[in-house]
């Protein structure tokens, strides 16, 4: 592996198979809790795991679905919806969360960007 800026900015967190389709897992990335979601077979999204409304690290355990064109996760505690692409909280924009880049490596590893977008 080369020591390029590009590889350094990604962290492999798990294998794609570690995430049940249409659910999320929580990954520790540079001391931050990141909720990583697999939607369908290969689409990956990553947002902060802490639900600011509840103060609990639970978003990875929420139900994934769609509202109109948005792909969202519903917080298991407050039931508020977070847009997986933007981190926006639909019901309370002041509770919106950070977003990370997520992608799939050829060997099937799920990568999360080390710096929030």
């Amino acid at each position: 592996m080369h020591d390029s800026a590009e590889t350094r900015s990604w962290t492999a967190v798990c294998a794609l198979d570690d995430i049940v389709p249409d659910t999320g897992v929580c990954a520790l990335v540079d001391d931050a809790q990141v909720a990583v979601f697999r939607v369908g077979e290969r689409d990956l999204y990553a947002i902060a795991n802490v639900d600011p409304g509840a103060g609990a690290a639970v978003l990875a355990r929420g139900l994934v679905g769609s509202l109109g064109e948005r792909i969202v996760v519903a917080s298991p505690i407050t039931k508020q919806h977070f847009d997986l692409r933007t981190g926006e909280c639909l019901e309370a924009p002041q509770h919106s969360v950070r977003v990370w880049q997520a992608s799939l490596r050829d060997d099937g590893q799920v990568l999360v960007g080390t710096v929030p977008r």
Partner: peptide
């Protein structure tokens, strides 16, 4: 089971009752 897992609320997914602190 695999086909039903992603449909479950957190409580059913982890077979326990989630509390305010997770």
């Amino acid at each position: 089971q695999k086909e039903h897992a992603s449909l479950q609320d957190s409580n059913d997914y982890f077979l326990a009752n989630i509390q305010k602190d997770g």
